[in-house]
Amino acid sequence: MPPVKMYSLSTCRHCKDAKQLLNDCTINFDFIDVDLLKRKERNDILEEIKKFNPDCSFPTIIIGDKVIAGFKEKEIKEALGI
C-alpha cells in the first residue's frame, strides 16, 4: 500500500469526508490541518502544497506518486487500488 498523506483544513467538510473514507477503508495516513499551524509553519507547508497542487485547494491528497485535489472518491479508491 503506497504512503498516503493529506493536507486538510479542520473546518472543511470535504476534508472530513476524505478522512472518513480513508478510515472506513482502514488506510493509514498522515494529515496536516493547515489552518491550525502557526504562520511560519503554515507558509512553509503552503509552498510544499503548491508543488503538488498549484491551486493550493483542500484537501490535497498524496497517494504514492498520485496527487488528488478535492474529495474525489473514485480517484482516491483507484489510487489506493481498492
Binding site: L9, T11, C12, R13, C15, D35, C56, S57, F58
Partner: peptide, 27 residues
C-alpha cells in the same frame, strides 16, 4: 447535518478570525 456543521464551522471562523471565512478555504 451538513448545513449545521458548516454553520458551526463558520461560527468557529468568526471566533478565531473575526469574520465568517469559508470553511473550505484557508483564511
Amino acid at each position: 447535518e451538513i448545513t449545521l456543521g458548516l454553520i458551526e464551522a463558520l461560527l468557529f471562523n468568526k471566533e478565531r478570525y473575526g469574520y465568517m471565512s469559508c470553511p473550505c478555504r484557508l483564511a
